[in-house]
Design a protein around this nucleic acid. Structure first.
Lengths: 209, 209
DNA sequence: CGGGTGTTTGAAAGGCATCAAAAAGCGTGG
DNA sequence: CCACGCTTTTTGATGCCTTTCAAACACCCG
């Protein structure tokens, strides 16, 4: 698929399951008045269209050139049903998706603009499996508007936040789609990142009443 | 469980699966600085703790008195694995959960305060399986603070929005936990609601057993 | 019938959105 | 290789919605 082309639309009857073999896609829903909410991005290896009988949950559209593998949904589920060791794999993927969704909900519901942007940068970096303590250069294939619609912000706010981070020496921008993350520890602080902390038991105990 | 008691905490090792036999629970995560994000509420019939090997995704805490059924996670998954007709049921539940999460993401990312509150009221009403065109009285077991933390707002904003809806004759309040929804068509308009109809059909089907 | 918690209302402040325009990329064609 | 025009991004000024802070009020339980 070329950039901008869609794999399927939100209203489509879900007939096939897809696997991304390369490239990046945006997954989104459009509100009646035209507002767009991007629920996630899909990268190489990920599955699309697994989570529904009926119609797709969102529109899937290519951000970069994308290569896909396609399988009829019925066949996919038959395979999963038959293969003893395939089932836990699908289950694990769905769990990961759920975890990501909940993380997203927390971010949209309770984090400020800066926290959201930094968290997005860090999660993108970590999706590549990079060392979490060392500075890293990441590629953001999607546009600022995509990022804004993903984070529940406007494009201007995303820009301003990035420039502020740049001036504060937390990141360095190189072109539109390349960002260098430096001072990871400070960034993690800014992101209000709970995943990497291990003091949650005491926190939970305190707040449990 | 009595109100305020927890079934499990976010950091706990996920050992058991629970089914709610009665009452209402809140599912939430706490940020390092104390902010709370409620990711959802659980009602009679729903399953808790299915979506993870490892540790639970959130804390589950009783809002009202709650009755639970408990099953070791290993046993639960063994049963599902063995039972040919149980698998699609679990799958459907997970899909419904995912759909709810995505709906929530859209609301938090792109809807204003009034839209969020109205959407919450309508989805609560429809969870009871009521007629969608006729006025209906609903019970909200949770506190205003719970609603605020669920909708990504403050308690004051939730209050103000409800008061405004009352003065505009869209709803009527009776005590703290009872709300009459009138003029459903107008409310749906306010909620920016396109596909809740489709959503709830499957949700109701899943809930029913 | 109090006391305490939870809710509602009010005033002021702040953060993000909106509107507007300049600057920077980027592909195209000379 | 550079000039051109378009799109995307960045920056700036202003306004609105939601939050914050504060206090009055209602509800519930003993």
């Amino acid at each position: 698929l070329k950039p901008g082309e869609a794999v399927f639309w939100e209203s489509d009857t879900a007939t096939h399951v897809f696997q991304v073999m390369g490239g990046c896609l945006r997954l989104y829903r459009i509100l009646p008045d035209g507002r767009r909410a991007i629920t996630g991005f899909a990268f190489c290896g990920e599955l699309l269209g697994t989570s529904l009988e009926g119609s797709y949950l969102h529109t899937a559209e290519a951000v970069t050139p994308v290569r896909l593998r396609r399988l009829p949904g019925s066949r996919f589920h038959a395979l999963v049903d038959a293969c003893e060791h395939l089932r836990p794999q699908l289950f694990a993927r769905m769990c990961a998706e759920m975890r990501a969704a909940q993380q997203h909900i927390v971010a949209l519901g309770r984090l400020g603009a800066e926290e959201r942007v930094v968290r997005f940068l860090l999660s993108t970096a970590w999706a590549t499996g990079a060392d979490r303590t060392r500075p890293i250069t990441i590629k953001l294939p999607m546009s600022r508007l995509d990022i804004a619609d993903y984070l529940g912000l406007t494009i201007e706010t995303v820009c301003r936040t990035l420039t502020k981070l740049k001036h504060d020496r937390f990141i360095a921008l190189d072109g539109r789609h390349t960002i260098l993350l430096r001072r990871m520890a400070d960034l993690r602080e800014l992101a209000c990142d709970i995943d990497t902390r291990h003091d949650d038991h005491s926190t939970a105990a305190v707040r449990s009443h």
